[in-house]
Design a protein around this nucleic acid. Sequence first.
DNA 1: CCTTGCGAACTTACGGCGTAAGTCTCACTT
DNA 2: AAGTGAGACTTACGCCGTAAGTTCGCAAGG
Lengths: 221, 221
Amino acid sequence: MTRRTTPPQPREALTRQRVLLAAVRLADAGGLETLSMRRLGEAVGVEAMSLYNHVANKEDLLDGMVDLVFGEVDLPAPGEPWREAMRRRADSMRLVLSRHRWAIGLMESRANPGPATLRHHDAVLGCLRRAGFSLTLTAHAVSVLDSYIYGFALQEKTLPFDTPEETAALAESIAAGFADGQYPYLAEIATAHVMRPGYSYGDEFTFGLDLVLDGLQQAAG
Amino acid sequence: MTRRTTPPQPREALTRQRVLLAAVRLADAGGLETLSMRRLGEAVGVEAMSLYNHVANKEDLLDGMVDLVFGEVDLPAPGEPWREAMRRRADSMRLVLSRHRWAIGLMESRANPGPATLRHHDAVLGCLRRAGFSLTLTAHAVSVLDSYIYGFALQEKTLPFDTPEETAALAESIAAGFADGQYPYLAEIATAHVMRPGYSYGDEFTFGLDLVLDGLQQAAG
DNA sequence: CCTTGCGAACTTACGGCGTAAGTCTCACTT
DNA sequence: AAGTGAGACTTACGCCGTAAGTTCGCAAGG
């Protein structure tokens, strides 16, 4: 009787995928700065150096994490009208980036895009091209949409509050610090706008996205 | 005869300002990751620990650097029409961010804004308010403009090439890697658009900025 | 059955990091 | 002349990424 090729072992075999998933989980929980090779090793039950059997170095690890995150973003559906598709993608991207705040400075700027990243960009380009956008307009559209989405996420990222109550409380303390009349417009917007009940910075996203989509529709003729 | 209060000493007195300027110079030259307290000390002729007489810690150092950079950005001129002012500010910001690429992920997200930062934001808000923008529209406008500007800078930051020739060369090698027909739209835009002579990603900035400004003008009625 | 090869884990070590804690020097005040 | 305090320096700690070398156990070849 031949031996099974992969007999069940006490410890689950470590794979690149398992390493990447654990790294994302760690970064989600404590931010990028808490993600070290030693801690990651501990999380998967291995010494730090063993991780190098699955990733080339920390840069490669980050590349893989980013590709994993790109894989979470909704792609345009086959027959979907471009405007709906771009809106869904934008909302999905924002949701994904809020789950993985550490990824925000990374996704646009990794030098080695993975397969999920390439598939994502190809799908977005394809959606616009099939909707009749010229090559030039497609490039413009992707640039302005991505700039807006990433930029908004970047600003949202480190607002040091999550609930409207916290927002209002902070705005109040800021406004109080400006009581001397320097920065009158900052004081005004803090007291009369941000401190309004129900204010949420996230709601600003819709305004800008509609503005951009309207502009593109206009340009597409 | 009384002694001069500050006799000329062999070494120039170290000040917070001198430390910050040196730090910015270091980061400009080699990126944020080359900026360490030891190297910064060396640059100003002092041991690392002596820097802590002028900055509270590295976070405080970064805060100060960001405020210095904000101080380089053009403010709206007193009587300037809002659209011109916002365009000038956007262009100026982009220029400043290209001088200080390391600042891009930092400017929007520091928790402790300095005086130049506050003055900048107050001036932008004031320009729009005086142009008749409602409080709500002003908040929308600032959000969409800043998102676009920072997002664009973020994407531009790590394009691994600076000249059109390099761009075209890279696009070509990428397109060659896609010869198998995966990612057809990426291949198309790389070969037929990016590789066109004279292409420069920076030129995309104008399109999106005009689109956003047009949309705001519309909304302002 | 034994050997051998090999991949995946482990161990050790190095140079660099931010910074806590303590010390020395010296110009200025009193 | 003595005292003070700021600004420099020294030492040390616990992290970090990773180069280099070692151990171990399975699987295939003789």
